[in-house]
Structures are given as structure tokens and as C-alpha cells.
Computed example of a mutant assay.
Amino acid sequence: MLIVMGHVQVAPSATEEFAADIQALAQSVRRREGNLSYAVAVEDPSAGRLLVAERWRDQASLSAHLDAPDTRAFVGKWQGRMAGDIRKYDAANERSLMDG
């Protein structure tokens, strides 16, 4: 499993538009083969800061998502208007929070 986590930064005045666009994209992303979860939340609207959290079955699923037409259209619209630090992590030992 892959975990994708990080922050995206947009101009505070664009936070509402960005959040609406990413939520619209999320509707199709959550139905993609290999998507285990996909969430974006506004962390600080006055700073234009959003939190991104995704889980993917494997690299092929994540790559297909990144190459999908709607993902590419979203990135094309916001490229140059967003910045971020989003990282990808390999997870090999998934268990519930309370397990040791």
C-alpha cells in the first residue's frame, strides 16, 4: 500500500474555489481502481492551507490516477496557483491504531 500525505498552499482568496474543485475531483478519484481512501481538508482557510491524505493499493493505481484526464485537467487549472509538499510512503505493516 502507498500513503500520500502532505499540504497544499493556495492564495487565501482561492481557498474556497480550490476546495470545491478538489472535492469535485474526489468524487471520481474515490471510485478509481486501487484507491483505498482520498481526502482533502481545509486546514487553515485564512492561510490557504489544505491537508491531503490518500491511500493507494499500489504504484500502478496511483500512476493511473495521476495520468487520468480529470486529474491532469485539475493540475493544469491550478498549476502555478498552488504549491505544496506532498510525499509518498510505502506501508507494509498495516494494523489498527490500538494494535501493538
Rank of each mutant, 00 (worst) to 15 (best):
M1G: 12
L2N: 06
L2Q: 08
V4M: 12
M5Q: 14
M5F: 10
M5V: 11
G6K: 05
G6H: 03
V8D: 07
V8F: 14
V8N: 12
Q9E: 14
P12L: 00
P12V: 00
P12N: 07
S13Y: 04
A14G: 01
A14I: 03
T15K: 01
T15R: 06
T15Q: 03
E16L: 11
E16Y: 12
E16H: 13
F18G: 05
A19Y: 06
A19V: 03
A19E: 04
D21K: 01
D21R: 01
I22R: 01
I22E: 04
I22V: 13
I22D: 04
Q23I: 15
L25R: 03
A26P: 06
R31P: 01
R32A: 13
R32I: 09
G34A: 08
L36I: 07
L36T: 00
S37Y: 14
A39C: 10
A39N: 08
A39L: 11
V40N: 00
V42L: 09
V42D: 05
P45N: 02
S46D: 10
S46Y: 03
A47V: 08
G48H: 01
G48T: 01
R49M: 10
L50K: 00
L50W: 02
A53S: 15
A53E: 07
A53Y: 07
E54K: 00
E54Y: 00
E54G: 01
R55K: 13
W56R: 05
W56H: 10
R57F: 01
R57V: 00
Q59W: 13
S61G: 12
S61Q: 08
L62W: 07
S63F: 02
H65K: 02
D67H: 12
D67A: 15
A68F: 07
A68I: 01
A68R: 08
P69S: 12
P69N: 14
D70S: 09
D70A: 15
T71Y: 08
R72G: 05
R72Q: 13
R72L: 09
R72D: 08
A73L: 02
F74C: 01
G76E: 07
G76S: 07
W78C: 08
Q79P: 02
G80K: 00
M82E: 05
M82V: 04
A83W: 13
I86D: 01
I86K: 04
I86Y: 05
R87S: 08
R87I: 10
K88M: 14
Y89E: 06
Y89C: 02
Y89I: 03
D90P: 04
A91E: 13
A91D: 11
A91S: 14
A92E: 11
N93T: 08
E94D: 14
R95H: 15
R95P: 06
R95Q: 14
S96F: 15
S96E: 15
M98N: 13
M98A: 14
M98P: 12
G100K: 15
